[in-house]
């Protein structure tokens, strides 16, 4: 489903361009979970952002369900983001102006496949039923991240991309949120690509790829 083939990416640096990714390749199929680990600055988040279509590769190829991201324009990648990909961030990145219920339903509605029953079930299972009328700022960190997970999965994306989703949570909360997330991803048969520092989180994944200095080892 996801094919990453020898991609390269550099950013302008203080003196010379910094090569963040130097020929990374990987594959991920539906129902598979993959941990992306490595030191800070090894290019994990950049890889994730490229896969999500938030940025463009300098070289190489990323394809989701056979569609080459490089061939897509801004609009095409935006369509990809709202229909095929789900994003969970470390900072939650909820929409502050929308209530919890609206945040959860947001992407599904964007993608045009809002399923009320599924959303309600998700909300229930994420333990957010009592909080649907609240604004994100009124929730704890764990609750906010559960809203973010709900938002992602409500749209039933083929590919879930998560960037340290438990990084901002204490370990107990983190463990619970992670377990819930893995359960739900498995149920929706999505592929999960998760950037993490944590050995514990990585070991919960099916496979792992370690990045070092912009290359997979």
């Amino acid at each position: 489903m996801l094919v990453v083939d020898d991609i390269r990416k550099s950013f302008p640096g203080a003196e010379a361009p910094v090569d963040v990714l130097r020929g990374v390749s990987l594959r991920l199929d539906r129902g598979e979970t993959l941990a992306l680990v490595g030191e800070s600055g090894s290019g994990k988040s950049t890889l994730l952002h490229l896969v999500a279509g938030l940025d463009r590769v300098d070289a190489g190829r990323i394809a989701i369900d056979g569609a080459d991201l490089a061939q897509m324009g801004d609009a095409g990648r935006a369509r990809l983001r709202r229909s095929a990909v789900g994003l969970v961030f470390q900072q939650f990145n909820l929409i502050p102006s929308l209530k919890v219920a609206d945040n959860i339903a947001f992407q599904a509605r964007l993608a045009g496949r809002h399923d009320t029953a599924w959303t309600a079930e998700l909300t229930e299972r994420l333990g957010l039923t009592a909080h649907t009328a609240k604004y994100p700022e009124e929730l704890s960190g764990g609750q906010q991240q559960r809203v973010a997970i709900g938002r992602t999965l409500a749209a039933r994306p083929a590919l879930v991309l998560a960037d340290e989703p438990t990084g901002n949570l204490d370990s107990d909360t983190g463990a619970r949120v992670l377990a819930l997330m893995l359960d739900l991803v498995a149920e929706t048969e999505a592929g999960l690509l998760m950037v993490t520092h944590s050995e514990r989180v990585a070991s919960a994944m099916g496979r792992r790829v370690t990045l070092e200095a912009g290359q997979a080892i």
């Binding site: 609009a75 983001r81 229909s83 929409i95 102006s97 992407q107």
Partner: peptide
């Protein structure tokens, strides 16, 4: 910070 998530969720900058 208010716009970035919406963008990430699938709206173009335009």
């Amino acid at each position: 910070p208010q716009l970035a998530p919406v963008w990430a969720l699938g709206l173009t900058r335009r």
